[in-house]
């Protein structure tokens, strides 16, 4: 089992992801007429099983998710997940739609994919810029289903970088969950990058 990140490292990670997500918010604000504020209140690295519990989503509940696969220095799958209601609500709030249909229409799904893409790209960008990682990233896809169908991983030993995202709109707060699911080797490399980065900063400050 990999060593846990120190609180300092977690702090650093939260900070850099908040910078990235801030950019995503800027893009979102340009896209929609509303002011959207994005914050990351929580980051954690934990085994997938626990990450799944962390999501706090009922296994029977329908979940809407946007996913992008990645490979390179580390590989795995990034997921942005909402309860179906929350996803629907977010899209409708951003689009100003008031359609009484219980499902996301095809075009609405596409909108959610774009929102997810902007946010996940911000996270990927952060990782690439700050952690000097070289990864190649696939196109975003929309998936819907229950938690067990969406939150899949190849083995019990996979780990997750779990990031909670809060969407603050003028009228509403909506919670989304990001999970970077990685295998253990990828995770070790990832942690190593984080340590190097933190070491870099602390040394710069010291010198």
């Amino acid at each position: 089992m990999p060593d846990k990140l120190t609180p300092l490292e977690i702090d650093a990670l939260t900070e850099i992801f908040n910078i990235g997500i801030g950019r995503a918010a800027k893009s979102l604000n340009q896209m929609v007429s509303q002011t959207v504020d994005l914050t990351i209140p929580e980051i954690e690295i934990l085994p997938n099983k626990q990450a799944k519990h962390k999501l706090d989503l009922d296994t029977a509940m329908e979940i809407s998710a946007v996913t992008q696969r990645f490979s390179g220095d580390f590989q795995g799958q990034a997921l942005l997940m909402f309860s179906k209601e929350n996803g629907l609500q977010l899209v409708r709030l951003l689009l100003g739609n008031k359609i009484p249909i219980e499902d996301l229409s095809e075009l609405e799904q596409d909108s959610l994919v774009e929102i997810g893409n902007v946010i996940l790209n911000a996270c990927f960008g952060t990782v690439i810029n700050f952690l000097q990682a070289s990864i190649s990233i696939e196109m975003p896809e929309f998936i819907q289903g229950n938690l067990n169908k969406i939150f899949t991983y190849s083995s019990e030993h996979d780990w997750s970088l779990y990031i909670k995202v809060k969407f603050s709109l003028p009228s509403e707060n909506i919670a989304g969950h990001i999970s970077f699911i990685m295998d253990i080797t990828s995770l070790e490399i990832f942690q190593e990058s984080v340590r190097k980065f933190v070491f870099g900063i602390t040394n710069t400050v010291k010198s």
Partner: peptide
Amino acid sequence: SRLSDACESALSLGLPARLSHTFN
């Protein structure tokens, strides 16, 4: 445009982007 931003991110960081009809 947002499309231009997306192309820039794709070229510099390799980030793929999807532009939906609803927002663009």
